[in-house]
Design a protein around this nucleic acid. Structure first.
Lengths: 210, 210
DNA sequence: AAGCCTGTGTAACTTAAGTTACTGTCTGTG
DNA sequence: CACAGACAGTAACTTAAGTTACACAGGCTT
């Protein structure tokens, strides 16, 4: 575990902190699709991502979904961070986008490390900063962009996260993530294909250039 | 200044911290409409609200606006918090919703206090938690609600913040906040009036029951 | 009082997005 | 192989929201 930690977090945390993390943290490997956190659950550990990616979603009362952002190597979930002090409840759902490895740290350590290690403070505040900004970007795209633009951004981001130019999703799944309907997504995808930007296939989409 | 601090923050900060804040902080009174922060500006102090309210907005490239949330007594701007470590740039605009008093604390103190005072850590993490959740709520309403619902929520929140059942705004101003058009807002307001929920007047709206 | 500006009301139209419904096609399973 | 179920294409329609255009009223200035 120490090696994994050093590789992903060695450049930000000092050795003493790395050792502390290794001591109390538990290594976890989860498969694609694994639900790490759901809305309404209590949060008792914070995740440090080692490899893979996690998809963070929001859901409303009618169980309409919406993709917020992805977490990657070196990221943590800021939602968790806020909860270390009071025992708060998750407002989001987190699902492994691919096979993912992470280290779970009991939140009791949070306060102690925040006082003790400057690098930990930096990390925590940085995480917040990134997460807030990503949330703002998501909000921008919903508030200011039309669905066709949102779809293009979605495909780009998905390709970036998965590191390949093939999107392994059905139109229905994309519709859920963007909180739209399958027919609308099919329609817009067709347009993108006619513009020569993508190739449509059953169960997958090949990105040519967006 | 000590008295103002004690009144608004005495129940969360210990005396030693209150004294430190009073030492380095500067008291500031700003009139309604005063622009405290704009997009792209560098952040060099963090605000602690004593009285009044601040409206936090987002703007895109085409200078379309969108209201994010309000800050009130006891709140601080989490956007600022993230910037204490690196010198980051504001992603938002902050405008005084009414005459407002606040204490500006130089961000150099941030890191020191975070290490030193548990109550400060609690406050900072709490702020993040609230801000993230408000951002999520704003996002929810944009993603999941229709404009009529958003308008009702807007009127309610505005009345709550200003502590009166009269909204002193033109339809155009409301349209800007909700990132919509004047005609659409007039139309929906008219419907609300016909339902007996509000009374429309020139330059103001009286809320009956929403 | 005349003129002007701002704010509001309303009609008519356009457009993006959502909805319903039906087709065809691919694929895995019995 | 046949069939069921999941997936995708498409047409026709509805609806919320945005747009354009114009009328009119209140309040201010000259």
């Amino acid at each position: 575990m120490i090696e994994a930690l050093k590789e992903s977090y060695g450049h930000i945390f000092e050795d003493a902190l790395i050792n502390e993390i290794a001591e109390v943290g538990s290594f976890k490997e989860v498969p694609e699709g694994y639900k790490l956190m759901d809305i309404g659950q209590y949060i008792k550990a914070m995740p440090l991502l080692i490899s893979g990616a996690i998809k963070v979603m929001r859901e409303d009362k009618d169980s309409d979904e919406l993709l917020l952002y992805y977490l990657e190597k070196g990221d943590t979930c800021s939602m968790t961070l806020t909860c270390c002090m009071g025992d708060a409840i998750s407002e989001i759902r987190a699902i492994a986008e691919m096979d993912t490895t992470l280290i779970m740290v009991p939140i009791q350590k949070m306060d102690e490390w925040t006082a003790k290690y400057k690098s930990w403070r930096n990390f925590v505040f940085d995480s917040y900063h990134h997460r807030l900004n990503e949330l703002l970007q998501t909000l921008d795209s919903i508030a200011f962009d039309k669905m066709d633009m949102r779809l293009v951004s979605y495909l780009k981001e998905k390709a970036r996260i998965n590191k390949e130019d093939i999107i392994h999703n059905t139109h229905q799944e994309i519709a859920y993530d963007l909180h739209s309907s399958r027919v609308v997504i099919s329609r817009l995808l067709k347009k993108l294909e006619q513009m020569g930007k993508i190739e449509l296939h059953r169960n997958y989409i090949k990105i040519l250039e967006l």
